[in-house]
Amino acid sequence: MPKQILSFTVNGDKVDLLVPPYVTLLDALRDEAGLTGPKEGCGTGDCGACTVHLDGKPVASCLVLALQARGRSVRTIEGLGTATALHPLQDAFVRHGVPQCGFCIPGVLMAAAALLEEHAAPTEEQIRYGIAGNLCRCTGYTKMVAAITEAAGMIKKGAAR
């Protein structure tokens, strides 16, 4: 089966990848674009470890065929902060000691980032539902919720400045 060109935007850069038609967006990002931050925890959209933003919305990239992303914009965990600075969410996750095994963390952060773009000051319930598609087996979620709450405050303060 011939590979096809997938032209899309990844973390702000226009990218052309040569991909087989039968791979997922997650595979294309990991294997062809070298972005191994998004993880495959289940392959069927039930764990959230592969969460990326597609046209600004959080999606399970294991359920998207690579060519379905043609012409669209993708943001991965590698594009959340900058080369030199962590995103406030990432910073809060580190300080709150959220990551343990770390495998779910990129997906949780992308879900949380999407949530904060929709709700600048989310309630605890909104946060819990916002990351309910992300299974974590290590943390019990309590420190995640605290870190997301704090990051929301930091972003708001930063915006006010």
């Binding site: 959209g45 959230g48 969460t51 597609l54 919305k57 959080p58 999606v59 399970a60 359920l63 998207v64 879900a111 999407a114 539902y129 916002g130 309910a132 598609g133 992300n134």
Partner: peptide
């Protein structure tokens, strides 16, 4: 349906 990551698809 599913989770927000699924509902967006």
């Amino acid at each position: 349906v599913g989770s927000v990551q699924v509902r967006n698809l």
